[in-house]
């Protein structure tokens, strides 16, 4: 059943139909609308995927990043350490205060030291507020410790002064 393909469509068997005048414009319109629809859907999906990817990546970094973990742990450790230091100093200051008020009967002296310590405590509160804003600033942390140190040193120095006076007087009396 061999055919010459050049003669295959020469007959009337192939239906002949006239295209409408608006065919071209209708076709272009359909093409345009289908293109728009397709583009919109693609970008929207792409955005969703990108957003999902960013969220997942961020979670991944936060959860798995060892540096982030170390930092947050270090911050917490520093805070704990500072609280410990503060607690120890305040306990010692209180202890020194108690022994100071036992050592001296000079009410004027006690009052003056009370005022000085209260003044230093006000300063400490001021620095503490700064620390709450900037917890990693070593200067603020050092200023806090320095304030506590000053209070403790003042109490130790005055007691040493009184003790030395008392001791020298005892030596002379003997």
């Amino acid at each position: 059943m061999k055919h010459d393909i050049r003669t295959l469509f020469k007959g009337d068997s192939f239906p002949k139909r006239e295209l409408p005048d608006s065919h071209r414009s209708e076709f272009l319109e359909k093409l345009q609308s289908s293109k728009k629809e397709k583009k919109y859907i693609n970008i929207s999906i792409l955005y969703k995927y990108v957003a999902l990817f960013i969220v997942l990546l961020s979670i991944g970094i936060i959860v798995t990043n060892p540096f982030s973990k170390e930092n947050s742990l270090a911050d917490t450790a520093l805070e704990i350490q500072l609280k410990e230091i503060e607690k120890t100093y305040l306990e010692n200051i209180d202890k020194e205060w108690q022994s100071f008020i036992v050592l001296t009967k000079d009410k004027k002296l006690i009052k003056r030291y009370e005022n000085k310590l209260s003044e230093l405590n006000d300063g400490y509160q001021e620095i503490s507020n700064q620390y709450k804003i900037d917890k990693n600033n070593m200067i603020v942390i050092e200023a806090l410790i320095e304030n506590l140190k000053t209070r403790l040193q003042l109490l130790k120095d005055i007691q040493q002064h009184i003790n030395l006076l008392n001791k020298e007087h005892e030596n002379i009396t003997i």
């Binding site: 700064q130 200067i139 603020v140 050092e142 200023a143 320095e146 000053t150 040193q153 120095d157």
Partner: peptide
């Protein structure tokens, strides 16, 4: 320049570490 102010406050106190007495 509160940061500087804090530095200055600290510098004023620095000297007590070695030469407090």
């Amino acid at each position: 320049i509160y940061f500087n102010a804090r530095l200055n406050a600290m510098l004023g106190n620095l000297y007590k570490k070695d030469t407090s007495k």
